[in-house]
Amino acid sequence: MEESDESIATLIAAHRQGPGALLPVLHAIQDEIGYIPADSVKEIAKALNLSSAEVHGVITFYHYFRSEPSASPRVEICCAESCQSMGSEKLLAHAKSVCDVHPVYCLGLCAASPAAMIDGKPYARLTPDKFDRILEKIAS
């Protein structure tokens, strides 16, 4: 925990400059640690001269920020219209039966629906079979 505190302080210091620094600070922390620990809110607020409520409000407003570590691998499946038209509901149901899934709304891969992002890597034209093979490959 000590180490993590230190790295959060370093990250805040590196990104607090410049106008509107809160999102860049939060991104830096999540990119580095994988989430934004609840006990870092006070420190962020102090450094940016904000209230803890403001920082908490921002973290919870945006779907992308999380206060808990994510499951590994992080599976995000697109649930928007284009992917729906190509069977994303079936893919989602299948994925949910094998792992933790986060719905997202559009990855910009719509001409090759259905699409997903797994640990930050894009995949398109997915089927339940193809999805399983990708997870197996990641696990091995």
């Binding site: 410049g18 509107g20 999102l23 860049p24 939060l26 991104h27 407003f61 945006y62 779907h63 992308y64 920020f65 997202v104 709304y105």
Partner: peptide, 10 residues
């Protein structure tokens, strides 16, 4: 110019 990353709010 500076790139700012959004955070998933439509």
């Amino acid at each position: 110019l500076e790139v700012r990353k959004a955070a998933g709010a439509y």
